[in-house]
Computed example of a mutant assay.
Amino acid sequence: MAKENDTLEVEYHVKREAFASLKKELPARIPRFIYDSGLVFEYPDAIRGIYVTGHSAGGGRFNDLVSLVNKTDLNAMVIDIKDDWGNVTFKPEESSPYAKIGKDYIKDPMKTLKTLEAENIYPIARVVVFKDSVLAKEHPDWSFKEGDTVWKNGRNESFVNPFLKEVWDYNVGIAIEAAKMGFQEIQFDYVRFPEGFELRDDELIYSQGDFQNSSEDNIQKRVEAVTSFVKYAKEQLEPYGVKVSVDIFGYTATLPEAPGIGQNFSKISKHVDVISSMIYPSHWTSYFGISKPDLEPYKLVTEYAKVENNTLAQLENPPISRPWIQDFTATWLGSGNYKVYGKKEVEDQIKALNDQGIEEFLIWNAGNKYTNGVDYTP
């Protein structure tokens, strides 16, 4: 028995030494599996991007937009993958749960992405989340109802319910489809309740899902739901190696939270790689002591950037700031309240960001008609 014990002791030490030797050869941390789309993109020195609809990405305008990026210091495109009505802008495979909401706006998304790869243009997939008339019609119980009908806002748009996990998974699934195709970043837009929701939250019929038993008031429940969705989406997308960004109203950086829509700038910023405040001068009422912000794009953006910088500086790991600025003319503001936006106005917004240390930006024009001759690094 003693001899047998001696043999076991020797075998134990041999195996232990062998394992120790092997351990030295292994990396300190084995990386987690990351999905590989087969496409290769480099993150630029700083993102300078434009918005591209599904129709533009899949139509003749696409080549013009690629040319615009190539002949300027632009380097990225934010492309609609799920649009403002809830349509997926390409046709998924028939087996996909999103096949029936697919449109053929982008007839060959892989060809589009390969073009962007060849031209070294960074691709960002825009996914509109809770504004979704298509899903609200298909699942009224996932939406907000007035009596027996789905509620619509003044623009005839419906929203789905941020409290519901089913809605989260539906949108995260679309984001995963985009990540698998090769998009390097998922940008979630309309991550909020409808504007003015605090005025009708007691009138509309809807479920609070898992948040029903929260001890918080309704304002904080909405904040909790929106923030939790962002955190959940980020976690679910980790295996795909994509960055996650969220579009957010600019004024939320100036408030503890937006009470009706559930957006808390700091809380959302903790769970994203990029925060993209929509700071179009035309979208502000009198603010920062500026009575008509659309007339003073440099000053408006400067004052906003100061506030945002201060807010983000208080976070342990702040995300990249990449605001949305405007390249459109807001005629709806009425005579004397707007100005025609062109080269100078776009450059003024970029310069204001740069002067405050913010190097990244995205430019919005709903029709994708961007001003010629703009210096994007003024």
Rank of each mutant, 00 (worst) to 15 (best):
I47M: 11
F41Q: 05
T72R: 02
V274K: 01
P378L: 09
Y341N: 08
R16T: 13
Y122E: 03
V88S: 00
N365G: 01
Q187E: 15
S133C: 09
Y105R: 11
L8H: 11
T72D: 07
E166N: 11
V172P: 00
G250Q: 04
A118V: 01
S228F: 04
E177C: 03
V160Y: 00
V301H: 15
Y370N: 01
P239I: 14
K339F: 07
E177R: 12
G196N: 15
G60R: 13
G173S: 07
Q236Y: 14
S143G: 02
L204E: 11
L65V: 00
F188K: 01
G373A: 07
Q212C: 07
S276R: 13
G147R: 07
A136P: 04
F197V: 01
F188N: 04
P162D: 15
A28P: 00
D108I: 07
T7V: 10
P109L: 13
F159D: 12
L237T: 12
R48G: 00
Y122H: 02
T115Y: 01
F33A: 09
L26W: 14
E25S: 12
E146L: 12
A253D: 06
S133M: 03
P378Q: 07
Y370T: 01
T112K: 06
L26P: 00
N161K: 06
F229I: 10
R29G: 08
W332I: 11
K221V: 04
S158A: 11
T371E: 03
K15R: 07
F144D: 13
Q212L: 09
K82T: 05
P378K: 11
Y370I: 01
V272R: 00
K344W: 05
